[in-house]
Computed example of a mutant assay.
Amino acid sequence: MLSACGVKDPQADVVAGKKLFVQKCGACHTLGRAGTKGTTGPNLDEAFQESLKGGFGRTAVRGVIYKQILFPNRLPSADGVKMPAKLVDGDNAHDVAAYVASVSAVGGKDTGLLATAVQAAGGGTATEKNGVISIPADPNGQLAYADAKAIGQPGPVTVEMPNKSGVGHDIVIDGLGKGQVVTEGTSSFKADLAAGQKYTYYCSVPGHRQAGMQGTLTVK
């Protein structure tokens, strides 16, 4: 039994809810405490801000979120993408709703078990091995590569992005190549790297680069 931001509920696991939210929902929604920066769907910090200021309780917010998870609005978002129904269900839907309701429009950072529930992506450095530079997408569904830096050697190389998450991603270097968008697969392209150059690799899926899914490849 856990509490977050003063909201107590023995029937919800907000730690599990945070993990599921990042994995299943973070690619589309911004939520500060979760560290997600998706832009396809509503910003969840802004969505309930006025209602909470006006006295709308977090228990009521949780109920709204739970219903939206199971039965999302039929209207598409601004870019025409519709939120699928029941991305999570059962107890998982309760866990996600409880977490989002407890941290929406709350500043600062999560503490305790919530602070370590999801490991931040982008801290590693990929290095070329046998002519291949492998830069995985974050397996937890964050809009980031596991490695925000990569090191390669001059000459021909294969740049690949293994993706074990359920969120579609690709990898692109302007002027060198573009991999295909994949879900639970590998995006790749072949390129020739120039000595002493630095290249920016990024995901071209709308909103993903803007949310921080990019990195720097240095050729030595």
Rank of each mutant, 00 (worst) to 15 (best):
G152Q: 00
T218G: 07
V219K: 00
C5T: 13
G108V: 03
T127A: 11
S187L: 09
G108R: 06
S51W: 12
V14K: 15
G63L: 06
G152V: 02
K164F: 01
Q142D: 04
V106Y: 12
M1S: 15
A148T: 08
V88R: 04
T186L: 10
F189P: 06
T36I: 11
R74A: 09
P136K: 05
K8L: 08
E46R: 11
Q180G: 15
F21R: 01
V182A: 02
Q197I: 03
E184N: 15
Q68I: 13
I171Q: 01
G17C: 09
N163V: 07
A148K: 14
P206S: 09
T186D: 06
G54L: 12
T39C: 08
D89E: 12
D79L: 09
S102Y: 08
V14A: 13
T186Y: 07
T200P: 10
C25M: 07
Q68H: 12
A120C: 10
C28N: 02
L143Q: 03
D95R: 07
T125L: 09
R58D: 12
K82L: 14
D79I: 07
H94E: 12
G6H: 11
Y99E: 00
K24A: 05
E50H: 11
G131K: 08
V172C: 07
A34K: 02
V64P: 09
V159Q: 05
Q210M: 06
